[in-house]
Design a protein around this nucleic acid. Sequence first.
DNA 1: CGAGTGGTTGAATTTCTTCAAGGCTCGTGG
DNA 2: CCACGAGCCTTGAAGAAATTCAACCACTCG
Lengths: 241, 241
Amino acid sequence: MFDTHDVVDSRQPTASTPEFIPPAQSPPLSAMEALVRALPLQRRRLKAKQYVFRAGQPRHTLHLIHAGVFKTSVLSEDGREKITGFRLRGELLGLDALDMATYACDAVALDVGEVWELPCAHLRETVPEFQELLTAALASEIRRDWGWMLALGTLAAEQRVAAFLLDLTARLGALGFSPLCMTLRMTRADVGNFLSLQLETVVRALSHLQALGLIRIERREIRIEDPAGLAATLSASRACH
Amino acid sequence: MFDTHDVVDSRQPTASTPEFIPPAQSPPLSAMEALVRALPLQRRRLKAKQYVFRAGQPRHTLHLIHAGVFKTSVLSEDGREKITGFRLRGELLGLDALDMATYACDAVALDVGEVWELPCAHLRETVPEFQELLTAALASEIRRDWGWMLALGTLAAEQRVAAFLLDLTARLGALGFSPLCMTLRMTRADVGNFLSLQLETVVRALSHLQALGLIRIERREIRIEDPAGLAATLSASRACH
DNA sequence: CGAGTGGTTGAATTTCTTCAAGGCTCGTGG
DNA sequence: CCACGAGCCTTGAAGAAATTCAACCACTCG
């Protein structure tokens, strides 16, 4: 059922090789990353399209993203797929299955990346703040999901795309990247799947936002030309009545 | 901002008056209910349309539903609303704000109901299994949300309504109610909001499912005439291609 | 009994999807 | 080095599904 032929990946035996110590220019660390950075964690490098784990596989650890962009997705029995989120540095993969024996979703790298494997049970006992952070991460994932449910349920196609861009830039900004310029690591089809739109609709929305002078597109590079204007497209809503 | 004029409600001073001891015919209890039923909890009765809490209010406890049906909803700054779920006995209200000082959603009773206020911090220390259950509840809320994101993103209107009915009957069945007959405690507009459909669309979907002989509608009473047939409508999907 | 809430149905409209065709970019192999 | 193919992106035109608008009914509650 779950062929793991493409999950083979390079693992660093036990601990940190020097060049892996968090880069000196390191931007604001996530609380979780700050908590565990000193520990000798299993680190795992992944190339684009490699799976961190797949739904149904036995669950062994939580994965903290240290670099790269990942997507998580769920699949129905009859093959319908839905991307549940795009995940950046400092975020956790596998949270949703904390109480289960197997993973509940797929997690796959969108480009080269690195995850740290957190020995969850051990950390819970030895690091008091860990449980705290875990609970916070779970609760904020719920709020994040609800936020997107709200967006998808009440915004028209173009607004959803705008909301998507704004969300991404905000999160990248929080990681220390330029908040006005970004590289989409996912395809238009991925964006469409996440936003419950067809890829053509995403393309048209992007083209139109560019025509309005709000963004500038060049392949997967997107520059926000008018952040305020982009944000303003969200309020004028379909839910006018 | 948050007028609480309709949140006043009858509180039982400290502990259980005799008639409140869980009914003798009690069906399968939720794990959480079993864990705390012996404790002297603050119990709170609510009438239809009363709020358990509202977004922005200071958070004091978790609320365990002991009776009744509740809905939780989030609101955007510009007034768009989205119902994030309908909650039954044994489920927790306020989970999503566990790490915050204020509630993150509204929780309102759809008919008469009762919630038990869980002294979260205290339980965490004294009852070892409590943290475990809490984590499980958080994780399954995430999976539940993802399941609905998948459904809303990949199913057509009529299929969403069918999925909604099947979900409700399954959950009511797990509580010991008849799995074939139920009373919707929410309006068509509520169902539509939850499923990201207009209320007219919900009505048409229900009418059509009835015309197909799969269900029988009488006001808010709904009987599942053909559970298998209803479930079968889910697979033949829009995501055919 | 009258008003109001909630539910139902029809017809017109809109938005998004579907289908089709073509172009761009990058990596691979000749 | 160039050609070629695959994957990804873009645009147009036709079609379908759901929304919007409008009217009306049924039941309940004061």
